[in-house]
Design a protein around this nucleic acid. Structure first.
Lengths: 360, 360
DNA sequence: TGTGCAGATGGTAGCGCTAACATTGGCAAA
DNA sequence: TTTGCCAATGTTAGCGCTACCATCTGCACA
């Protein structure tokens, strides 16, 4: 009695604890603990009773107590640089959700490009970080990955799957996505399809271009170098690339840009030249950022499941850290999630008289 | 010895604890606790000794243990709906930082507009939420604020300061910001200044318009209703509003939009009409979202310190929750942070021959 | 019938910290 | 001096959970 009175004085509001559940289910707290951690060696009937008690009491475990007792405080650092805010917010949302699930602490750090990344990582490591999550474009930096590997810091990247590097990654199949987009344009009836690449210094730019070429080849359309303009992922670079394409003796009937910003820039240039989109020109993007639905017409694009990706990345990272702490060997995993083609207003068949046929 | 061996077995990596610091400083663990929580009643010399020990040992408190012992698990819910991702990511960044500081849990929840908000809040409350942070445009909903007040849920809003409502808020002075922007345009030499409002259903739209009128009046420029077009904060609505302004017998020399999206739309319409920005038309935005630096020319706009605002909001919220748990009465506070005018490429004096004079 | 063993469960002792109370020493008022 | 009191510090007992081991049960096998 004395104990419970004191306990009540300490506690700010009545909270259901594991012991309450244990009493209700007629087992020991330890068994309840085993059930909520889905460990083995619990009889089904016991498990059911405990679960019922948990439900009836509306019990949810105290995270602080759990991580204190299991001494498993995990802090992961999400490192970014120049990421678009759309990307960042979606990433954060996914990460936050999963981080809660795993009772992990999330620290978000920005750095000024790759050069600065090493310093930032050192700082964070000193601060007690147990793992790092890299988002594009940092995920594309071999130097950085090597550094992290040397230091033996558990790392997961969102983005390119750098084969040979023993670092887990979560990505979509960019090549296949670019191919899907190009096939979609071909299906619409386009034959003269322009392409705006991303910044050549990032791997993903080359990969997306390959997807475009794959689709052309598969459809028996000759690949023409003059239809490929080099961009750098920025709106500004999209403006220039689009101008190149418009300067061609014969303007393409469709332009597929390697991201939404360059697609938006292409639409803007088209409008300035009084070319109707999609009436006279189809424009498509990539990434499905906010911009794709901001501009008018809204852009047909490829959506990456960004939140799901960071969700999965945190899961991978946390499990990896736990495994390595438990002395188990960690396999590095590469997850590829599904993308989808989002059809909007910026795409149509090359000529108006053909009725617009939608893709499934 | 037996004890420490067992402890070592439990712990995954050696960690400096408060007791280590206490031994080093020659005091009791409790005194160390008092120092790190900056409580009173500690002699300066003792405090110095403890701080030295902390530094030498590189001690940092275990958050889990702390929140377990103080039974002060605080979970705050950041509730948003239709927020732009720029806004959201900046808000998240600020909130995450402060949440870490306070050892508070952050739960982020999205809801489908105000109607859905009540349900979401109920769910979250059931999940053990101890406070709510509302970001625009939800922060503008009186119904929602009333609901939260009735339920006695500690709440802080980022955005409009709803006087009379006993709910804390963090905001910038929108009226003054809009006035500053208009004064900047007047200072540039503009006299015929168009204005595109935000969605009339949000308070902030009216407030920003008032700032615009304030500046005109102060400069002795007659306010003309035909120069004010109604937008709804979206790119699309900006397109329409800009068309209205361009349909005027005499086109304004500057257009001040109530956010960046509508400013970007205005630029796009201008380009379509072969009106040079800023040569023939100055366009300004509001918010300094990513879009402002994405389009070309980059947009002169008002920057809100979004991260600082959410940082402050979490601080307010956490302190409020602690105070109310400790039985202290909570004063509701209204913080107003500073905005700044960011001058970029979309603004210039009305005629080319006048040299461009910059604002401080 | 006894032995061994594995699976299921319980008991104990902390994880690192702080609330609450106990104690100490010093100094002003009586 | 004695009393009283307050500021500075220490002691104790948990916060809610889990690692580790002990125990117990049932059952296959000798």
């Amino acid at each position: 009695m004395g104990k419970s009175r004191r306990a009540a004085a300490r506690r700010h509001y009545a909270r259901v604890t594991i012991s309450d559940v244990a009493v209700r289910a007629g087992v020991s707290p330890m068994t309840v603990s085993r059930v909520i951690n889905s460990e083995g060696n619990v009889r089904d009937s016991t498990r059911a009773a405990v679960n019922a008690a948990i439900r009836e009491l509306g019990f949810s475990p105290n995270r602080a107590a759990r991580s204190l007792a299991s001494a498993s405080q995990i802090q992961v650092c999400l490192l970014y640089a120049n990421s678009s805010s759309t990307y960042l917010s979606a990433t954060l949302l996914g990460a936050l959700e999963q981080v809660r699930e795993h009772d992990t602490q999330l620290v978000v750090a920005e750095c000024d490009g790759e050069a600065d990344a090493e310093r930032t990582i050192n700082d964070q490591l000193k601060g007690g970080i147990s793992g790092v999550l890299l988002v594009p474009p940092l995920a594309d930096s071999l130097d950085l990955l090597n550094l992290l590997k040397e230091r033996d810091v558990p790392t997961v990247t969102i983005g390119p799957q750098l084969v040979g590097e023993r670092i887990s990654s979560v990505t979509i199949d960019d090549r296949s996505a670019a191919r899907t987009m190009t096939e979609y344009l071909i299906g619409l009836g386009h034959r003269r399809i322009g392409f705006i690449t991303g910044d050549p210094k990032y791997l993903v730019s080359e990969v997306r271009k390959s997807g475009y070429r794959d689709a052309l080849e598969a459809a028996g359309i000759k690949w023409r170098p003059e239809l490929v303009a080099t961009g750098r992922f920025s709106y500004r670079s999209g403006l220039d690339a689009a101008e190149c394409l418009f300067a061609l003796p014969e303007i393409p009937t469709a332009i597929s840009a390697s991201n939404d910003e360059m697609a938006a820039a292409t639409i803007s240039v088209a409008h300035r030249r009084h070319i109707d989109v999609p009436g006279e020109l189809t424009v498509t993007g990539f990434d499905d950022t906010l911009l794709a639905t901001t501009v008018w017409p809204e852009i047909t694009t490829i959506r990456q499941p960004i939140s799901d990706m960071s969700h999965a990345a945190i899961d991978l990272l946390t499990r990896g850290i736990r495994a390595s702490r438990a002395g188990r060997d960690t396999e590095c995993e590469h997850l590829t999630l599904d993308y989808s083609l989002i059809e909007r207003e910026s795409s149509a068949p090359p000529v108006r008289r053909v009725p617009r046929d939608r893709i499934a």
